[in-house]
Amino acid sequence: MNIQQIASIPFLLGGFFFFVAATVGLLRFPDFFCRLHATGKGDTLAVLLSLIGLSIYEGFSLTSLKILFIAVFMFLAQPTSTHAISRAAMRCGQEPWVKERSK
């Protein structure tokens, strides 16, 4: 194992961790907005970490530059689409979840 492969391990493991966390949030959170919150933030960070890890693994080449471009556009597009979906849900009258108060 050379230094590039060792350096890419923490990024890939971090990406894996955030993917798992986002999926657990998607499955376990109570309503639409909480789930969107979990996947929107978690997946963005996970994709970013995974792609940076892959570009480090690839080394300094045209392929790693393309991977970094994908990461930049993911970082732009994913929060925007999350914002658009949540805004559309809000307009369609989706009620945010509130904790039931004890009387």
């Binding site: 556009f73 732009l76 597009a77 925007t80 914002h83 658009a84 805004r87």
Partner: peptide
């Protein structure tokens, strides 16, 4: 009328 979506689309479309 959302400025965020319009601005990001304006950045993304040429690419």
């Amino acid at each position: 009328d959302d400025i965020i979506i319009r601005a990001v689309a304006r950045i993304m479309i040429p690419f």
